[in-house]
Simulated assay, not measured.
Amino acid sequence: MRVGPPRGATATLEVTVTPDMAAIVAGEQIHPVYGTAALVQHMEQVSRALLVPHLESGEEGVGAGVDLIHRAPVPIGETVVLTATVATVAPTKLVCEVLTRHGATIVARGSVEQRVVPLAAFRDEVEARRTRPQAAV
């Protein structure tokens, strides 16, 4: 990774909650609100925006960890703003703190850790897992 983003750098993502982002379990909508799974996806998306400009050719960023407290419901049709702030930068790691707001309300807070890996090696590992026989459970 080229010199990473400076500590304190930020990126934002504005999301209008749609029905496919609702709290869904086994294909069934549980609540008509912004679901935690969609929230995690958007946390990764806004954090990745800070990493991608610093990747070198042949590198890729992969999710390595998420920590999240989801504190308040947001109804479908409402808009949230996620702000990722760089907390830790290392040669092969970027950690962003992410704050999600609905108006003045803090909906969620957490962090996303991304690792920088060689793209070819990552693709090889994915392929090996696809063709490897599954172990008995």
Rank of each mutant, 00 (worst) to 15 (best):
M1N: 06
V3Q: 14
V3T: 15
G4H: 01
G4N: 05
G4R: 01
G4F: 03
G4Y: 05
P5F: 02
P6A: 14
R7I: 15
R7M: 10
G8Y: 04
G8C: 06
A9M: 04
A11Y: 07
A11R: 09
T12L: 01
T12K: 03
L13S: 09
L13D: 05
L13G: 09
E14G: 07
E14K: 11
E14C: 10
V15D: 04
V15E: 08
V15A: 08
T16H: 02
T16I: 09
T16S: 02
T16C: 06
T16G: 02
V17F: 14
T18F: 06
T18Q: 14
D20Q: 08
D20F: 04
M21P: 04
A22P: 05
A22S: 06
A22N: 02
A22F: 13
A23D: 15
A23K: 10
A23S: 14
A23F: 14
I24N: 04
I24P: 11
V25E: 12
A26K: 11
A26E: 15
E28S: 10
Q29M: 15
Q29G: 03
Q29D: 02
I30W: 04
H31D: 13
G35P: 13
G35E: 13
T36F: 06
T36M: 07
A37F: 07
A37C: 13
L39M: 15
V40C: 12
Q41E: 12
E44D: 15
Q45N: 12
V46Y: 03
S47T: 14
R48C: 02
L50D: 07
L50P: 11
V52T: 07
V52G: 00
E56V: 03
S57D: 12
G58L: 05
G58I: 11
E60S: 09
G61R: 02
G61P: 09
G61W: 05
G63C: 08
G63Q: 14
A64E: 09
A64H: 06
V66T: 13
L68Q: 07
L68M: 07
H70L: 12
R71E: 08
A72H: 15
A72F: 05
I76D: 06
G77S: 14
T79C: 07
V81F: 00
V81N: 00
T85L: 01
T85I: 09
V86E: 00
T88M: 00
T88Q: 06
V89K: 06
A90L: 12
P91F: 11
L94G: 01
V95S: 08
C96S: 12
E97P: 05
L99K: 13
T100Q: 00
T100S: 06
R101V: 03
H102M: 04
H102C: 02
G103Y: 00
G103L: 08
G103M: 02
T105M: 08
I106R: 12
I106F: 01
A108E: 01
V112I: 14
V112H: 15
Q114S: 07
Q114F: 08
R115Y: 02
R115F: 01
R115A: 11
V116Q: 00
V116L: 00
V117H: 03
V117R: 01
V117M: 04
F122N: 06
F122P: 07
R123A: 13
E125L: 14
V126F: 03
A128W: 15
R129W: 13
R130H: 15
R130I: 12
T131M: 05
R132I: 02
P133I: 05
V137T: 12
V137H: 09
